[in-house]
Computed example of a mutant assay.
Amino acid sequence: MTFGEQPAYLRVASDLRQKIVNGSLPPHTRLPSQARIREEYGVSDTVALEARKVLMAEGLVEGRSGSGTYVRERAVPRRVSRSGDRPPCGSSPFRQEQAEEGARGTWESSSEQEPASAEVAERLGIDEGARVMRTRYLYRDSGDPMMLSTSWEPLDITGRTPVMLPEEGPLGGCGVVDRMAAVDIVVDNVLEQVAARPGLAEELLALGGVPGHVVLVVERTFYASGRAVETADVVVPADRYRLAYHLPVR
């Protein structure tokens, strides 16, 4: 293959994608059948099938049992703001995972103690198997699921203190910085690493996505004098939300 050439299935997918983007194939329109694609583009059944798989993986089309493949309604991405500013305790239902102004956000959470996995232990700088408090969140935007978050805190820091449970007690819902300050730990920086990957089946089920959809994952860790005091994975659907960072210029 010379530079610039594309496999046949990608050329077919590209042409169909363009028709979806420019409105020639509007939302809810049935995608041409495999036989129609084969005839129109002069390709094999295998190429036609692979082209349809590409569009499905990109979230542009969806299969309907017993009916065919249809163009999906394209969501207009909304913004999820990420900021180093600390809002007043209890002022925002999303705190660090705060949606854009005007969003009506709610969330559900549950906390449970567990032994740290190898990955979590490495991120927190603790021994594998050490006890941590895991808290899972499901955030909703105007009632629709929009974001998942799972956090882990070492219980050798918060265990048997009033802030052991992130969403309960006198500082429940106040965020990591204020809760840690209550046990004389000063959080002084946070690291966020952003990556994209296909969503896990359970993530897409919770977020209302379909298999193959891509999610953005923010791996966030709070530090106090170099020691990790909380780490979390924040997951948002890439086709519906964009991450916007507001950072001070020093």
Results as ranks from 00 to 15, higher is better:
residue 110 S to K: 09
residue 18 Q to S: 07
residue 133 M to D: 07
residue 121 A to M: 06
residue 120 V to K: 01
residue 145 P to K: 12
residue 14 S to M: 04
residue 35 A to L: 12
residue 126 I to W: 01
residue 154 P to R: 03
residue 150 T to M: 01
residue 58 E to M: 09
residue 107 W to I: 10
residue 147 M to W: 00
residue 93 P to H: 10
residue 16 L to G: 11
residue 157 I to H: 07
residue 17 R to Q: 10
residue 134 R to W: 06
residue 17 R to G: 10
residue 14 S to W: 04
residue 82 R to E: 08
residue 146 M to Q: 08
residue 18 Q to N: 06
residue 129 G to F: 10
residue 49 L to F: 07
residue 53 K to M: 10
residue 19 K to Y: 04
residue 72 R to Q: 11
residue 158 T to R: 11
residue 148 L to T: 06
residue 113 Q to S: 08
residue 62 E to G: 10
residue 44 S to T: 15
residue 119 E to A: 12
residue 68 G to V: 01
residue 80 V to N: 07
residue 156 D to R: 05
residue 18 Q to M: 03
residue 145 P to W: 06
residue 43 V to Y: 06
residue 18 Q to K: 07
residue 149 S to W: 01
residue 96 Q to L: 10
residue 151 S to P: 02
residue 141 D to F: 04
residue 18 Q to E: 09
residue 138 L to A: 02
residue 156 D to A: 09
residue 143 G to M: 01
residue 115 P to H: 05
residue 156 D to E: 13
residue 136 R to W: 07
residue 121 A to P: 07
residue 62 E to F: 04
residue 149 S to L: 02
residue 60 L to R: 00
residue 75 A to R: 04
residue 81 S to T: 13
residue 35 A to P: 01
residue 98 Q to W: 09
residue 102 G to Y: 06
residue 51 A to Q: 01
residue 94 F to T: 11
residue 150 T to P: 01
residue 150 T to L: 00
residue 106 T to M: 00
residue 74 R to W: 01
residue 151 S to E: 08
residue 55 L to W: 02
residue 21 V to G: 07
residue 107 W to T: 13
residue 113 Q to F: 01
residue 98 Q to K: 14
residue 77 P to R: 05
residue 111 S to M: 05
residue 61 V to S: 02
residue 92 S to M: 04
residue 125 G to P: 12
residue 34 Q to A: 14
residue 60 L to Q: 03
residue 130 A to S: 15
residue 114 E to N: 05
residue 125 G to W: 09
residue 98 Q to N: 15
residue 116 A to W: 04
residue 151 S to A: 06
residue 89 C to Y: 05
residue 158 T to V: 14
residue 29 T to Q: 08
residue 40 E to N: 12
residue 108 E to D: 15
residue 105 G to S: 13
residue 21 V to W: 07
residue 30 R to D: 03
residue 127 D to M: 11
residue 146 M to C: 13
residue 69 T to H: 02
residue 19 K to P: 00
residue 56 M to Q: 12
residue 22 N to K: 10
residue 25 L to N: 09
residue 39 E to R: 14
residue 36 R to G: 08
residue 131 R to E: 15
residue 155 L to A: 10
residue 15 D to V: 13
residue 136 R to H: 10
residue 143 G to S: 00
residue 88 P to V: 08
residue 30 R to V: 08
residue 81 S to G: 06
residue 23 G to C: 03
residue 136 R to P: 05
residue 39 E to W: 03
residue 38 R to I: 05
residue 123 R to P: 05
residue 57 A to P: 00
residue 20 I to D: 09
residue 69 T to M: 03
residue 74 R to H: 07
residue 37 I to R: 09
residue 133 M to G: 12
residue 40 E to M: 12
residue 97 E to Q: 14
residue 41 Y to K: 03
residue 50 E to Q: 15
residue 133 M to Q: 13
residue 154 P to A: 09
residue 53 K to P: 07
residue 92 S to V: 07
residue 41 Y to L: 00
residue 38 R to V: 06
residue 98 Q to L: 08
residue 90 G to D: 05
residue 112 E to Y: 03
residue 69 T to D: 00
residue 152 W to N: 06
residue 152 W to T: 04
residue 86 R to L: 15
residue 118 A to L: 14
residue 95 R to K: 10
residue 22 N to A: 10
residue 127 D to L: 11
residue 118 A to Q: 15
residue 140 R to P: 03
residue 40 E to R: 13
residue 61 V to M: 02
residue 49 L to K: 13
residue 115 P to E: 02
residue 36 R to P: 03
